[in-house]
Amino acid sequence: MMNKNAISLLAAFLLMIILSVVSIRVGAVSVPFKEIWLTLQTQPNKSFFIVHELRMPRVAVAILAGIGLSVGGVILQSVLRNPLASPDVIGLTKGAGFLAAAVLFLFPASPSYWLPLAALAGAFLAFALLLLLTRRLTLPPATLALVGIAIGAAFGAGTQYLIVKHPRDISLALLWLAGSLWGRNWHDVWTLLPWIVILLPAAWLSFSKLNVLQFNDMTGASLGLNIFRERFLLILLAVALAGICVSAVGAIGFVGLLAPHIARSLAGPRHQRLIPLAALIGADLMLLGDFLGRIIIAPREVPAGIMTAVIGAPYFVYLLRRERRMRSTKQA
């Protein structure tokens, strides 16, 4: 008999495979399965480029970024003990967005690799500011979240200023800020992959610490954890995971909020189960958002960041309502 947890894991995994295949099959140009099969046998035909150079790397980037953003979200929600925590809340995506916008507006002719580097630097800059302003994260988690929001607001204001100051160039910046998988290639995959391969196991291996930290500091301390150090290392882990993903796909914040919630409602609070499931659900969300964004107004595209929010927001509301209902029935 398989338990519920294994079933949800398997379902999320199968959904990921199905979405990947559909993403490779369908698009502005339709590639029949037979041709996909032929391209896999390295018979260069006219669909080879579309399958191998456009859709496959895009699917891979969607999966990797979905994993990074959602696992980053899980860690932040648990460590900050705040259900609203996500890479957005500690100012990370806003910091990345600000430096990315600065590059787009102030150095439009800069080489293309500047943009992800600037975004990554922005994410870590936001984290460094958080360290400075919260006495190196020793303040209570609720305060950490508030300071993070303040940092994010400041960076957000900076981005707004740049947008207002350069009204003509905003299309490029808005596309990046919305978060998009357009034009992502194998180079992006190879940049993301090593980070995810190293950081995802690191996150999973921290499950026992996360299980303890999500309650309160007293429990953690009484169980012999160096609360402040563990909290710092875990938030750093989340920042690295989410930061590298944001630098690759733009400021897609919502996946990092939504995927952990869906996973939590299916797998419960234990992180040894929660982290793998959230990773898969994050990948599913990104794949679905990117796929819909690609076909909905083809040949134009809706950025994946917008689509994930459009499909995710109603489900999020449903989830919150159901949670409340369950809680009230429990009390009664």
């Binding site: 502005a28 998009s180 034009g183 083809a298 040949p299």
Partner: peptide
């Protein structure tokens, strides 16, 4: 498609 994100496919 778009001049900003032309459809590469």
């Amino acid at each position: 498609g778009s001049r900003y994100e032309p459809n590469i496919e």
